[in-house]
Design a binder for these strands. Structure first.
Lengths: 137, 137
DNA sequence: ATATCTGCAAAGGATTTGCACGAGT
DNA sequence: ACTCGTGCAAATCCTTTGCAGATAT
């Protein structure tokens, strides 16, 4: 059987262009607004579906830990995000700047123009129960 | 004027007891179910309001980065959380085990019975724009 | 009395989904 | 033809809110 062939529709193309044209890590809503400037009849559902598709293909990053709304990032290189606790703005930080920033809590980080005040670290893994199911099943 | 005097209602008391009686970092919904066993007529709104109140008083922790629903933790000592990517279960990790776990990605961490497969680090701060507003205003 | 708190139900915001139509191969 | 994608609107999920009645000091 032939492999499924995703299509590069105008919507999909413009959504990706819009995302690649900004460094602001926009929400779906903000992407919607930007895309509508070029494609007035696009629907929000299409935005969500395409952002999801692009993410599933590894073409964009989905940032779901930066507030109440998801944000999206066309830059998939490993890097960290800094979130402003006042206005919610999201900035980038080169990966190798992390340890520097963590040690400098409450100091101004010259590399990202944010004064770092805190951080959040969370681990992912597989719990013992799920591990057992894997090995026994 | 007298300081406001929050009351220790039965609802509030039981919610806190229930939360202190588990290490499962329950969602509001799960707290609701547990509380209803002792207080069948409690409402979900009351659960949310009290969890919020307890959090605002620094009595419990609110974990909003562990999936789509908020989770709550009566243990406010600094410690990390490990989230199972299969079933969503959340475990604890002593703070000083963090560096160990990060170095052991994909290895089994004996301290928390999770096999750590990844992590997420995010920074918080104040952006240049908001800093300017503070210093100039 | 009065401020705090409750249960109920409705509202809210973000995201997902069902469906019939449209477009590419 | 057939599959994939779209617009629209409704549905869903989690959380918050308005309100009238209840409770404690």
């Amino acid at each position: 059987m032939p492999t499924p062939s995703p299509r590069l529709t105008p919507q999909r193309k413009i959504i990706l262009e819009v995302l690649r044209g900004t460094r602001s890590h926009p929400t779906a809503d903000e992407v919607y607004d930007m895309v509508r400037e070029r494609l007035p009849n696009v629907s929000l559902g299409t935005i969500y579906r395409n952002l999801d598709f692009l993410h599933s293909q590894g073409i964009i990053r989905k940032l779901d830990k930066l507030g109440s709304q998801m944000r999206f990032d066309a830059c998939i290189d490993p890097h960290l995000h800094v979130c402003c606790i006042e206005c919610g703005k999201v900035g980038d930080l080169p990966a190798d700047a992390a340890s520097v920033s963590l040690r400098r809590d409450a100091g101004m980080d010259t590399q990202c123009a944010f004064r770092i005040t805190g951080h959040w670290l969370e681990l992912y893994g597989i719990c013992a129960d799920c591990l057992t199911e894997h090995t026994s099943g």
